[in-house]
C-alpha cells in the first residue's frame, strides 16, 4: 500500500513539475489571431462553395470568394488562446448575396486548445440551419455551423486585415426624463479603431441637438441630447455620422412618456 501511495505521489509531483516547467518556459498558446484569420477564411470558402453548389449558384469557387477575416478575442484580454469569446469579421464576394453596409458578416467561434474550432455565421448572410437545395430537397446548411482545425505550427505573421466597428443605437424607445431630455444608448461592435462621431436628434422635424461620442470597440455608452423634447412630439429620428466606425442608417423611434 505504501508503495502505491509513493507512486501516486511521485506521479503527481512529476506532473506538477512538468506543469511548472511549461509555465516558466511558456511560449504561449498555438491558438493565435493570425492563424485563426487564415484558417477561417479557407474553411469558410470551402463550406460556402458547398452551399453555393447546393443552391445552384453558378460561378462560386473558394478562390472567387476572396474571403478575408479579422478575428478578435474581446477587449482587455490577450489575443490568443482557446475560448468561446472569439469573434471573426469576414468579407467575401458573392454576387447572389450582397454584403451589409459594414462590408462584413460576424462569425462566432468556439476555439479549443487542440487548434480545432466550431464557427457559426450570421443567418442574414448565410441562411438558417436547413436550406432548400436547387433540386427541391431540404438539406443541412453546410455554412450554418462548421468545424475546422488548423496547423498549430502554421504561419503566424499578422494578416493585416482590418474592418471598422459598426455603431448601433441600442435604445428601442425615446423616453424623456423629467426635464424633457432624451438619453440614447449606443454600442460599438467588434472591429478595428473603435467608434467616433456625432449623433443628431430631431423630433418631428425640430432639432434636439448634436452630441459627440467616442467609444472603444465592444463598448457601450449613453448620450444625453441637449435639446428638450417638444411635448407633442410623436417620433424621434437619430442620425449618426462617424469619423471612425460604420454608421447605422437613420433610426426613427416612437416617443413613450
Amino acid at each position: 500500500m505504501r508503495r502505491i501511495i509513493t507512486i501516486l505521489l511521485t506521479t503527481v509531483v512529476v506532473l506538477a513539475g512538468l506543469g511548472l516547467f511549461a509555465r516558466a518556459t511558456s511560449s504561449g498558446s498555438s491558438v493565435t489571431k493570425p492563424r485563426l484569420e487564415r484558417s477561417i477564411a479557407v474553411s469558410f470558402s470551402n463550406v460556402y462553395s458547398q452551399q453555393a453548389a447546393l443552391l445552384g449558384h453558378k460561378g462560386i469557387s473558394p478562390k472567387s470568394l476572396h474571403a478575408q477575416a479579422m478575428c478578435d478575442k474581446g477587449p482587455g484580454v490577450p489575443q490568443n488562446g482557446p475560448g468561446t469569446s472569439w469573434v471573426c469579421l469576414m468579407s467575401w464576394d458573392d454576387p447572389n448575396v450582397p454584403m451589409p453596409t459594414t462590408g462584413y458578416g460576424k462569425f462566432e467561434l468556439s476555439v479549443h486548445s487542440n487548434s480545432c474550432y466550431t464557427a457559426g455565421g450570421p443567418s442574414s448572410l448565410i441562411g438558417y440551419q436547413t436550406i432548400a437545395a436547387a433540386d427541391g430537397r431540404t438539406v443541412n446548411n453546410p455554412v450554418y455551423e462548421f468545424d475546422a482545425c488548423f496547423d498549430p505550427q502554421s504561419d503566424n505573421t499578422p494578416t493585416r486585415v482590418t474592418f471598422p466597428s459598426a455603431v448601433r443605437i441600442t435604445s428601442t424607445t425615446a423616453t424623456p426624463d423629467d426635464s424633457g431630455r432624451l438619453r440614447v444608448d449606443l454600442a460599438c461592435a467588434e472591429g478595428a479603431g473603435g467608434c467616433r462621431g456625432t449623433l443628431t436628434g430631431t423630433a418631428d422635424g425640430s432639432p434636439l441637438g448634436v452630441v459627440d461620442f467616442s467609444l472603444t470597440k465592444q463598448a457601450t455608452d449613453s448620450l444625453n441630447l441637449p435639446g428638450a423634447l417638444p411635448t407633442k412630439a410623436k417620433n424621434v429620428t437619430y442620425t449618426v455620422t462617424t469619423t471612425a466606425g460604420v454608421a447605422p442608417p437613420p433610426l426613427v423611434l416612437p416617443v413613450q412618456r
Binding site: 506532473l15 509555465r23 486548445s113
Partner: peptide, 27 residues
C-alpha cells in the same frame, strides 16, 4: 493539463496530444 491555459506549452510533448495528430490528415 494540455487543455489548461497555463500549461498549454506542454501539449506537444504529451502522448495524449499524439492521439489528436490525425486532425492534420483531414485538413
Amino acid at each position: 493539463v494540455g487543455a489548461t491555459g497555463g500549461a498549454e506549452a506542454l501539449r506537444p510533448y504529451l502522448p495524449t496530444t499524439a492521439y489528436e495528430a490525425w486532425h492534420g490528415f483531414l485538413a
